[in-house]
Design a protein around this nucleic acid. Structure first.
Lengths: 242, 242
DNA sequence: CGGATTTTTGATAGCAATCAACAGCGGTGG
DNA sequence: CCACCGCTGTTGATTGCTATCAAAAATCCG
């Protein structure tokens, strides 16, 4: 089902004095971790990296497997997931463009990384990246800030998983997706019902029923399977906050 | 119910050339974050810090409050916790001696930090610590490694909260506590039943019933309320892994 | 248009929460 | 020293929520 990631193209290292073309035209240059680097650092880092593409469903890293690669998401959406011994899955993170993926400074990957949509990434060998990060304070610090923010988010999600009822979980997810999408009351859902269930620690049926209930209450409407409009943000947030 | 932390003593900065006495006799010097520093760095850091004590139940930081302090735990055990709008609590982390607490590089504390036992800490003003960390690469890197490990642990706990049944959760917690305690089949439980419930996203009754079931199955025994012996580690681990 | 997949809806069952009472333990004071 | 009290933990009865099982409806895609 899952195939290996394919290399799209070798990096094109520009002249030493200028930015490599692969970075110059990078869609996430301003917001990815590399934005902490100056031009010379960026040039040096770009020599370690290459771009790859993943098709929806394709995995890049496996839980418990060697943490061989790290990198930035350029486009598409990926999931971080772990599984119990008998195969129940929990999504522990959703990764968007400009987010960093992989486990620097660790031998094994603590979770799987799988593309939910077709995606493109800028990836580095982990050990080469680790070495680079040790030499470039700015990258290390940017990584620290990101990791601290991720930890905050993971712990906040623990409250949802440990203490919130199904309806509250679904409301919380909608609020988070809407916030991430940035404002508008109408959002494209990046997740299928099954994926929503795997994020929320619920079943697909319970997610569906919760959405129906929110719809019937007039709090949201569902113009399409993957589209959702928040009709009453205040009530939605009230439910989400538990 | 919760009182403010009390300052125990001002730091005693030793002669510039030697280690300050507060660090020289520090119980966690070899394993806390400061072990990344050389003597001069340690001396500089120690000038920013002071020791405080907390009594059981006392809070150091509040969820949503200003993240004024960071520091190392010297002795005792603390919890990190968050609450829903209507007061349901989830413990998102247990902190042991030599662990780091607080939220560097952030304005607000994402969770409360509360002592579960009497505890002593070596704390720093956050902004002073932030400045220090930016100037001392070694601390920043040590913090990064710790934060990455914490993130791995938090995400692993998300699997437990999202997908494991009550009995599996309790078994997992016992395994984790036993591993942390280091080997012996008999462990002192650092948590009350209520606190175990708050970590596991369960109620106190369900935790108690799960323990009783494990006891009746001969997998564990409970020589005292706060003492537990693992009789059949393999079966316990099998249950824990889901 | 037709088949496959995803989503919704319905019926039922099971697990954990809730409500309630009791037991064990430790501390205190008579 | 023992009786009493408060607190923590255990056990029991019941309820309620969510999972599970099952089937229909909607959507997607060739």
């Amino acid at each position: 089902m899952y195939r290996d990631a394919n290399v799209e193209e070798a990096p094109v290292a520009g002249r030493a004095a200028s930015l490599p073309s692969s970075c110059a035209d990078c869609r996430v240059r301003a917001s990815a971790i590399c934005c902490a680097l100056d031009d010379s650092g960026l040039t040096a880092l770009s020599r370690l990296g290459r771009r790859i593409t993943l098709t929806a469903g394709q995995a890049l890293l496996w839980e418990g497997g060697e943490a061989v690669t790290v990198g930035n998401v350029l486009s598409g959406i990926l999931k971080l997931s772990t599984m119990t011994g008998d195969g129940r899955e929990q999504i522990v993170g959703i990764v968007y463009p400009s987010d960093f993926i992989g486990r620097p400074f660790g031998k094994d990957s603590p979770h799987s990384v799988t593309a939910l949509t077709d995606a493109s990434l800028c990836v580095f060998g982990r050990s080469a990246f680790d070495r680079f990060a040790r030499e470039h304070e700015a990258i290390g610090h940017a990584l620290l800030e990101r990791t601290l923010a991720e930890l905050d988010r993971a712990r906040h999600w623990m409250l949802l998983l440990g203490r919130k009822a199904a309806g509250e979980r679904v409301a919380s997810l909608i609020v988070e997706i809407a916030d991430r999408a940035g404002g508008g009351p109408s959002v494209e859902l990046p997740l299928s019902r099954q994926q929503m269930a795997d994020v929320l620690g619920l079943t697909i049926e319970t997610v569906s029923r919760s959405l129906t209930r929110l719809k019937r209450a007039g709090i949201i409407s569902l113009p399409g399977l993957r589209r959702l409009t928040i009709e009453q943000p205040d009530r939605l947030r009230a439910i989400a906050s538990g």
